[in-house]
């Protein structure tokens, strides 16, 4: 796949095996197989502090952080210093997630529901990857 002159090397950080299965081999994937929603956000924060920037919004989807167990975020490796807008966005997202989880933890869903959550999470990421502009970022 043509990456474009200034395109960033991209990583998908996810705990959703549907995302992992669909994109392994095509993109670098940090697959947190047993990780939680907040584990994905925390991992994303670590990457941002190590020279990555957000490509997708960490709170994509209207499903609340204490509702869906799945989260996928796309980031890109930059050669620049810390991207502060990404830092602010990931911190705000972590605050919001913790706010929801503080009052009520994510329920133990059955397989059917878990599968629906995975499908929705995958859809949010798929729409970005098929975007013709994706390869220049």
């Amino acid at each position: 796949m043509h990456k474009g002159g200034t395109a960033l090397e991209k990583f998908i950080i996810t705990n959703n095996d549907k995302v992992y299965k669909k994109y392994k081999g095509k993109y670098k994937i940090v697959f947190l197989e047993k990780g939680s929603y907040t584990d994905v956000l925390n991992e994303t924060r670590d990457y941002i502090h190590n020279g990555c920037k957000l490509i997708t919004h960490p709170m994509a989807g209207s499903l609340k952080p204490n509702q869906t167990p799945y989260k996928s975020v796309i980031i890109g490796k930059t050669s620049e210093k810390t991207d502060y807008s990404s830092v602010i966005l990931i911190e705000n997202s972590l605050d919001a997630a913790n706010k929801f989880l503080k009052h009520k933890s994510t329920p133990k869903w059955n397989e059917k529901i878990l599968n629906d959550f995975k499908t929705v999470d995958l859809s949010l990421i798929e729409n970005v990857i098929v975007n013709p502009m994706f390869n220049i970022y």
Binding site: L54, H57, A60, N127, V128, N131, Y137
Partner: peptide
């Protein structure tokens, strides 16, 4: 209200 930050 897209997911891709570049779209935003």
């Amino acid at each position: 209200e897209n997911v891709f930050l570049a779209d935003k």
